[in-house]
C-alpha cells in the first residue's frame, strides 16, 4: 500500500485534519516511510497468536451505581470556546 494524494486526503477527512496542497508531498513521503517500516511485521508468523490490547492481567474493576454530581455546569463550560445559555455552541449543523 502506498499513500498517494487522494488516499491521503481521504484519510485526512476521516481524521478531520485538513491537509494543504503544499504539505501533501512531504506528508505522503513520511507516511509511506512509516508504513514501510511497520510492514516488516508481515514476515512474522502470528496465526496461532491471540492479540493483546492491554498488558494488565486483571479483572475489570466496577463501581457502584451512585450519583456524584460534583461537576457544575460552570465547571464543564469553563473552557468552552463558545457557549450560550449553558450550551456549547458550534456552527449550524444540518441533519
Amino acid at each position: 500500500m502506498e499513500f498517494d494524494k487522494k488516499s491521503l486526503l481521504k484519510l485526512g477527512k476521516l481524521a478531520r485534519i485538513s491537509i494543504s496542497e503544499n504539505k501533501l508531498n512531504n506528508l505522503s513521503k513520511d507516511l509511506n516511510s512509516i508504513l514501510e517500516f511497520v510492514d516488516q511485521l508481515k514476515e512474522i508468523k502470528t496465526d496461532q497468536v491471540d492479540p493483546t490490547s492491554n498488558s494488565l492481567n486483571q479483572k475489570l474493576e466496577v463501581r457502584d451505581d451512585k450519583v456524584d454530581n460534583k461537576n457544575s455546569t460552570e465547571d464543564v463550560l469553563e473552557n468552552a470556546p463558545e457557549k450560550e445559555m449553558d450550551f456549547f455552541v458550534v456552527p449550524k449543523v444540518i441533519e
Binding site: M1, L11, S55
Partner: peptide, 26 residues
C-alpha cells in the same frame, strides 16, 4: 493521527492493528 487512523480503518485493521497486537502478545 493519520497513521493511527489508517491502521484502524476498514480493510487495514487486521493487517496492521490486530497484527501488532499479536506481536505484542509474542
Amino acid at each position: 493521527i493519520l497513521i493511527g487512523t489508517y491502521v484502524l480503518s476498514s480493510g487495514y485493521y487486521d493487517a496492521y492493528y490486530i497484527k501488532a497486537q499479536k506481536i505484542r502478545s509474542l
